Amino acid sequence: MTIAPDDAQQGASHQYRAMRDFVQSMDDTLPGKFEITKEGIVHDMVAPVKQHELTVLRLRKRLEQVMPEEIVAHTGEPDVEDAPEGIMRRPDVMVIAEADMEGEGTFDPRTLLAAVEIVSNSNPDNDWVSKVRDYPLVGVPIYAVFDPRTGTGAVLTDIHSTPDGPRYATRKDFVYGEDVTIGDWTISTENLPRYADKDRPKSDPKGNG
């Protein structure tokens, strides 16, 4: 059977709406975070919770100390959504103008100045692979990754076109203890918590993913 482009688009839209309804119904039911990617629904347990949440807190406070008052480092809801692309994410920290938070519904990813993620033990590929693909696809200009497993991270910028779609052209790696620049703002990575050896998966004793 041949599916016309309009029919295919309507089918994809219906599938996305079904996934979106499921994710919203699960948000307060199960622990962790549900997101929608180009590959389907991802469930990230976001564990260990203490180190993850402390990293989020310290990064938020450090960013807001150096940013102008009208720019915030927002944590929590709502999601960042691009329905035509079939992507709905919830970054750990969203750098965004306070004015762009007004109104109803989800955030337009193109209003974000940067997305910051803290890698979890439960699903590191979600941060290091899937989001590296999804964020440039929906127009997030800067993506910063902090990995408490290894005490390292990266800042990805400069979206450009490739045969596989928009991708980040520039990646700057860092290690905990160095200053890191995200957009126009430079912050310290001193005293960011690391996951303890006992928290790392047994198949990943060195925390290398």
Score class of each variant (00 low, 15 high):
residue 137 L to G: 07
residue 142 I to R: 00
residue 190 E to N: 14
residue 177 G to E: 11
residue 192 L to Y: 08
residue 152 T to M: 10
residue 79 D to A: 15
residue 106 T to G: 01
residue 69 E to F: 14
residue 183 G to W: 07
residue 122 S to C: 03
residue 172 K to Q: 08
residue 70 E to C: 11
residue 87 I to G: 02
residue 92 D to A: 05
residue 108 D to Q: 09
residue 127 D to I: 08
residue 68 P to G: 03
residue 165 G to T: 03
residue 143 Y to T: 01
residue 137 L to C: 12
residue 158 D to E: 15
residue 151 G to V: 11
residue 168 Y to K: 08
residue 99 A to Y: 08
residue 169 A to C: 11
residue 68 P to I: 06
residue 128 W to N: 01
residue 91 P to S: 03
residue 179 D to F: 12
residue 105 G to E: 05
residue 73 A to N: 06
residue 95 V to M: 13
residue 88 M to C: 12
residue 126 N to V: 06
residue 75 T to M: 15
residue 183 G to V: 11
residue 79 D to R: 15
residue 96 I to G: 03
residue 194 R to K: 09
residue 130 S to M: 08
residue 117 E to C: 11
residue 147 D to Y: 09
residue 136 P to A: 01
residue 82 D to R: 09
residue 97 A to G: 05
residue 137 L to H: 12
residue 70 E to Y: 13
residue 144 A to R: 02
residue 121 N to R: 08
residue 151 G to R: 05
residue 112 L to S: 05
residue 160 H to N: 01
residue 137 L to K: 14
residue 67 M to H: 08
residue 158 D to C: 09
residue 132 V to L: 12
residue 95 V to R: 03
residue 77 E to G: 15
residue 162 T to M: 06
residue 99 A to N: 08
residue 195 Y to A: 04
residue 192 L to C: 07
residue 95 V to F: 10
residue 169 A to Y: 13
residue 78 P to R: 02
residue 167 R to P: 01
residue 85 E to R: 13
residue 147 D to P: 12
residue 76 G to N: 07
residue 110 R to A: 06
residue 188 S to N: 06
residue 83 A to F: 14
residue 175 V to A: 03
residue 194 R to Y: 13
residue 99 A to I: 06
residue 130 S to N: 09
residue 130 S to K: 13
residue 183 G to D: 03
residue 126 N to C: 06
